[in-house]
Design a protein around this nucleic acid. Structure first.
Lengths: 332, 332
DNA sequence: GTGAAAGCGCTAACAC
DNA sequence: GTGTTAGCGCTTTCAC
């Protein structure tokens, strides 16, 4: 008996079991087959350490059961959470995730979308940074964007209502007596950021508040760096693009000997797990990020079942008031 | 001109360009071809919106350029970081990541490994929870484990030197005068946890320190819940399985009116990004997690190039002393 | 330099 | 029930 060097195929199993490849296939896929033959096939497969080739199956089936996911930054906990929701939902339907990180680069994003599309049945683009008209070109296959408006294009969209969330947090701050609010802006290409900034502008106008926008980013370091500009502006409350940014700012304020919320109130977006454990616990707009992932899969599944059937899901946010926001300090 | 309903294949392009499929293939893959034909093929491909089928390519090539990655919890920032390193490294070699989350379940882990293996050229198992002997059965293809000893088995291993890290942090605490140290243990199946606990035991014995181990887990909630047991034991310093757990405990201590580090010193593992922004900033054992991901790819790549060629990489840790550890309180 | 044809490993008609 | 065979879409000899 000679060792098979190359990986055993269904042909090898068939030969060893003295049956046809069709029978092997049937046994492997649980079709009705004579018990004796089942036994022989099973034995041969085990003997040869046979493992079916997924690629060949996919080619034959015309589908890979792979879903491509593109995120701007794998390190951001809020994308991890989305990924988790997505992995969970797709997993129950036997689909797996092909994950790529565009590192906030539009060029990478473009290249990766092209590449992922070759291997996947559908694509989920998380907070894509590419302009809408360019995204439209990829809408040839099943496609869902998260946290990104898609206009009337033939793709689906799942996201949260950032506008309402921001409106709510601004109202909360206004109620506490704050008249000058700072905003630590997120990545310039981020649609969520634009949406939050727009809501802030609208709310501030309606409530006659002053607003100072400082460009930050999406990480704690970005928030930390933004402190000086914020202090110079003389705001009494700050809303950060996300919790990570808020955390960086919080640390900076503490280093300056400023107390939160006595001297400055602070709120974030996301409600990442650590938010509640900070000192003070962070007031934040909770986003159902994991649920966005699950909804994205549902939308994609609809497209998979019936091409061209796209929809939009916008999930509500919830203001979680904790210790980092308080009454505005008395002003002279 | 009728619309092609099914996706256009290389045959459609060949027909439209009046050339053979071989020529189309050559053009697509940048082989030498008559410029005029190149033009025609390009035009036809564009006209038909042709996209090559990645599955067919993979089948023909005998490789998918897909790497399966299994993590116990996608929500844990330290796995995100590893994923990032891995995505980065594999990406530069044209490989993509097939990601699955076992949710800390051994059954899921087993099932997912089987499934991933069908579609991938190689596997990276992050902190696998399955017993070693079972893992060995999967070592038929290229395989790398992270943060897991693999004995003499035919697989590679990339990880950090948890033992040395724990030894260092214990010495640090002993130097500060602590004589009774608490350990918030991680997931029971985690090899890293076992390693850290072993190091703690050894160090404590050498330094004649008392140790109290409290079972926690890997999340902040786990750390938070462990507080009562720890207080009852009367420790003056605590080492947590990871930073997340430490954060939960830190919040709990604060709620009890206890000051860190005046009343209790606290240290974690990982040095996740928020660690430095906490109040007080967290003393922790920094693990080069992203680098572990990169090294895992290098080890896998070696196996891909030459079957059976496995190795082990153990990266050094670094104690980062911040504000959460201080002198032991005077004891009566 | 180009085309015809074989074949990657599997499944699904289709005959028997 | 089981075997034979034709593909799935692509790349790659091998002739020409």
């Amino acid at each position: 008996m000679y060792e098979v060097i190359r990986k055993p195929t269904i042909v090898d199993v068939a030969r060893a079991a003295q049956v046809s490849t069709a029978t092997v296939s049937r046994v492997l896929n649980g079709r009705r087959v004579d018990p004796e033959l089942v036994r022989r096939v099973r034995a041969a497969a085990a003997e040869l350490h046979y493992r079916p080739n997924g690629t060949a199956r996919s080619l034959q089936a015309g589908a890979t059961r792979l879903i491509g996911v593109l995120v701007p930054d794998l390190g951001n906990p809020s994308f991890s959470e989305l990924l988790r929701g997505l992995a969970d939902a797709t997993g129950t339907h036997g689909h797996r995730l092909l994950v790529a990180d565009s590192k906030e680069s539009q060029d990478e994003e473009r290249a990766l979308i092209h590449e992922l599309a070759l291997h996947c049945d559908g694509l989920v683009l998380c907070s894509p940074r590419l302009p809408l008209e360019e995204l439209a070109r990829f809408a040839v296959g099943p496609l869902v964007c998260t946290n990104r408006e898609v206009g009337g294009l033939s793709m689906s969209s799942a996201g949260v209502d950032s506008y309402a969330g921001m409106t709510e947090v601004v109202r909360h701050l206004a109620t506490l007596g704050h008249r000058h609010i700072g905003y630590l802006a997120g990545p310039p290409d981020s649609w969520s950021n634009a949406e939050r900034q727009r809501a802030l502008g609208d709310s501030a106008a309606a409530l006659r508040l002053q607003v100072t926008v400082v460009q930050a980013g999406s990480t704690s370091d970005d928030g930390h760096r933004a402190l000086p500009a914020l202090l110079a502006a003389g705001v009494t409350a700050v809303v950060a693009f996300n919790d990570l940014v808020a955390i960086g700012l919080l640390a900076g304020l503490r280093e300056q000997g400023l107390d939160v919320p006595r001297d400055v109130s602070l709120a974030g977006f996301d409600d990442i797990p650590v938010a509640q454990f900070l000192a003070p616990p962070l007031t934040t707009v909770r986003l159902p990020t994991e649920e966005v992932g699950r909804q994205a899969w549902e939308l994609l599944r609809e497209q998979l079942q019936q091409a061209g059937r796209h929809g939009t899901v916008r999930l509500p946010t919830e203001l979680v008031v904790r210790g980092s926001t308080g009454p505005a300090p008395d002003t002279v």
